[in-house]
């Protein structure tokens, strides 16, 4: 389980995070903003955050204890 922080004012909906997410967690909505629609599938690899050219998505991996 991970916690996503999406700064919508920065997101341009380019879809890079969606394309590189190995678990298909993210989706871009009709207004060109990204959302974490399946956060429970996230493995916390951080590709979305690393490859976001707009500094719009941040993912914090929670450890198992904190998630409970």
């Amino acid at each position: 389980m991970s916690v996503f922080t999406i700064r919508e004012e920065r997101c341009k909906g380019c879809g890079i995070c969606v394309a590189f997410c190995p678990k298909n967690v993210l989706e871009v909505d009709a207004l060109s903003k990204v959302h974490a629609v399946r956060p429970e599938d996230c493995i916390g690899c951080g590709q979305c955050e690393l490859l976001c050219p707009d500094f719009a998505i941040f993912v914090d991996k929670m450890d198992r204890e904190a998630a409970k």
Partner: peptide
């Protein structure tokens, strides 16, 4: 946000 296009690699 910067003015670069969506999907631009400059960021």
């Amino acid at each position: 946000p910067h003015i670069w296009c969506p999907g631009c690699g400059n960021g």
